[in-house]
Design a protein around this nucleic acid. Structure first.
Lengths: 235, 235
DNA sequence: TAGATTGTTAATCGATTAACAATC
DNA sequence: TAGATTGTTAATCGATTAACAATC
């Protein structure tokens, strides 16, 4: 019943697993024990065949005639996503955005913890967020040597983003999420992802401005939707 | 030389246009006048063929032998994205995240403006961000009647997100960007996009935990990368 | 001209989806 | 059993990419 040992999960499926994960989390909290692919599909706004195909890459966890046991499926997805691990994350930049991130769901959910926080602003250095003291960026290398982060998050002003990226890469961090509205240059082996309101707004703008034109409207944007660019090659 | 009048831009291309847009903006600011598909591809971390194909959907704007005129290409992309329009955006929720959004690049760049801001917190209502006064959510319907937003942004705590979504949809807004870590139910014709740190972190976690395993690593995540789910059908 | 680079073709690859046999 | 729903197949669709003729 487990999938073959050499299962290779398609990228498009990986992108949807966190979505199913969140849906299942909400369902489980609401007391749901069993869920069908139809229901999952409705909530994720995707095709039910796609849900079944996606889940089939992880194994055969459903029961014909009744559906999936929500809690069990959730555990399987967590395992697949590596959320049974403990990934320390370093956040650089604790302005409004950085503070929002540090206080976000991302770090209260399984798999992640705030490893370290950095800023250069004297009034912020030394203060604490969620029990973690903000350190000066000058201390970056020693802090990282103590507790090496798995993922670096850039939440600085755009002008500082490349410098911080260089620092992260220089310290051996190979996964970066960039919230600064700036295109970054990093070595090709570094996993780099962008999260960006402007880009989302622009994609919306495209669909808004093409919506009512003749019949010229393109297909609706697919669900694992773009927010930016980029990624690194796997090792 | 313009593309056929019935050009239909593929979804994957639409997702990359904002990326090219940003790169061109940075190049133009840095004084670059001409750029090749190779250079653009390098900065966007995609294949050069893909850049040329993407741009060819907009028309034939390059010059064989030398490349693209940066400023002109930028203008064409802006036009295609509808950034020559003026889209008022309403932001609901002005905690750290909402404030970060209101002050972000998204609203200082072409095409968008902060139309209205809403919160329920008495200490916030009446204060101003970038010249716009925060109003109480109770005033939502009258405010929206005065100046109907094209796009609604949800930046509230997760628990309030569905209620706000209902309010937005009820007032006729058909494009929503949700920053709250909650799955929303909205009618199928509503364009809904999610932006979410947790989801980004989870996708990173997957690639991190599969990186060194045997040769089992999946393909690197494609650049228009997933951050969530969903979208509405075009009208 | 010689070198460079576009725009486009066509082959390939990956993702989506309807359909249905398997089976609870 | 009858009804429901999975897991998987196979056809289809869309996206990627190498290659190269066109052409500046």
């Amino acid at each position: 019943m487990p999938a073959s040992p050499t299962r290779r999960i398609p990228e498009a499926t990986v992108a949807r697993l966190p979505v199913y994960q969140r849906i299942l989390l909400e369902l489980v909290r609401a007391g749901t024990t069993t869920v069908s692919s139809d229901r999952l599909a409705e909530m994720a706004r995707v095709n039910a065949s796609k849900v079944r195909k996606d889940l089939s890459f992880l194994g055969s966890f459903g029961t014909r005639g009744s559906g999936y046991e929500a809690e069990y499926l959730l555990a399987q997805i967590d395992r697949e996503l590596g959320l049974d691990g403990d990934w320390p994350v370093a956040i650089v930049g604790l302005g409004n955005l950085g503070r929002a991130l540090a206080n976000s769901h991302g770090f209260t959910s399984r798999g992640f913890r705030i490893g370290s926080l950095f800023d250069v602003e004297p009034s912020l250095v030394g203060t604490r967020i969620r029990g973690v003291t903000i350190r000066h960026l000058d201390e970056f290398h020693e802090a990282v040597a103590e507790d090496p982060p798995a993922i670096g998050v850039i939440a600085t002003p755009a002008a500082d983003a490349q410098g911080v990226a260089d620092l992260l890469v220089g310290s051996g961090i190979s996964s970066i999420i960039n919230f600064a509205p700036r295109v970054l240059a990093v070595p090709p082996e570094v996993l780099l992802r962008y999260v960006d309101l402007s880009i989302e707004l622009q994609v919306m703008s495209f669909y808004l401005s093409h919506r009512d034109q003749l019949g010229t409207v393109a297909a609706s944007p697919a669900l694992p939707h773009a927010v930016g660019l980029t990624s690194g090659e796997p090792a």
